[in-house]
Design a protein around this nucleic acid. Structure first.
Length: 257
DNA sequence: CGACTTTGACCGGCGC
DNA sequence: GCGCCGGTCAAAGTCG
């Protein structure tokens, strides 16, 4: 609503010179995208990175580089989250506690299923965008890509969600990704593969070829480690098998009564 | 009646 | 220079 009206109003201002208010701009230059530039500096970069990515990821794998362009776009945080859903569920909805407004849907070349585009509807100025698309490999997996960071708290801090900034980390049956930003590049660990074996998934800011040195430096950073520990602790403690095993181990160490 | 979703058209960038 | 493609806009439609 809010973001929607914002864009519409800007467009109106942009065509104020036109003689009549046609349902569609009479001339293509009437400027649908007028006024988008200001809020869109980041997006054009997304398009670039996405195109680069699409060329390389026809299989829709998660570990492909999500690099944004060097320079002006490097500070945009990109987080990818996978959720397993009911294959019969056609709604491209990933619940993460935030309110999203859908502003577009598109069928992309590398994936027959449509991609939905969402903006954060909770705060008009929130720059976060979300793209949701089914995995090309497994239609029961939704891949949500978050771009940017919320500049407001989560509207619903209750219940199922992880409270930490990358929205939606482990709500689905695929326990998911962790994303940390420190001074620019983002590294995401995708924990979805092989039962939790961490895998360096993406290194932002390193174009098509991930820079392993940068990745290693990020992984070694204290903030990354603490977040990783928190994430893993959360994952492990929520696993009944783990808690059982932990309880058994503790009991073994206790003296018998 | 307002809020939200759908959907066709448009734009800009990139590759050839 | 042209065409392709992803991303976005905004009118129309739908829902509560």
């Amino acid at each position: 609503m809010i973001a929607h009206l914002y864009g519409r109003d800007v467009a109106r201002l942009g065509v104020e010179g036109s003689a009549s208010p046609p349902p569609r701009p009479a001339s293509p230059l009437a400027g649908k995208k007028r006024g988008r530039d200001s809020m869109e500096a980041a997006n054009s970069c997304d398009a670039h990175s996405n195109r680069q990515k699409s060329g390389a990821t026809a299989d829709g794998d998660y570990d492909e580089s999500l690099a944004t362009d060097e320079g002006s776009c490097r500070r945009i945080k990109v987080t990818r989250v996978c959720r397993r859903i009911d294959p019969s569920d056609t709604s491209l909805v990933v619940k993460d506690g935030y309110q999203w407004r859908k502003y577009g849907q598109k069928v992309t070349r590398d994936n027959p299923s449509p991609r939905a585009y969402f903006r954060c509807a909770f705060a008009p100025s929130c720059p976060v965008k979300k793209k949701v698309q089914r995995s090309a490999e497994d239609s029961s997996v939704l891949v949500a890509t978050y771009e940017g960071e919320h500049n407001h708290p989560s509207p619903s801090r209750v219940g199922e969600l992880p409270p930490t900034p990358p929205p939606a980390a482990h709500n689905g049956s695929l326990p998911c990704s962790i994303s940390i930003k420190s001074s620019g590049p983002t590294i995401t660990l995708d924990l979805t593969n092989n039962g939790g074996i961490a895998q360096a998934a993406e290194a932002e800011g390193t174009a098509a070829a991930p820079d392993l040195k940068v990745m290693c430096r990020e992984v070694a950073s204290p903030e990354f480690r603490s977040a990783l520990v928190a994430q893993m602790a959360s994952e492990l403690t929520s696993d009944p098998k783990f808690t059982d095993a932990l309880a058994a181990a503790i009991l073994r160490k206790l003296p018998d009564y």
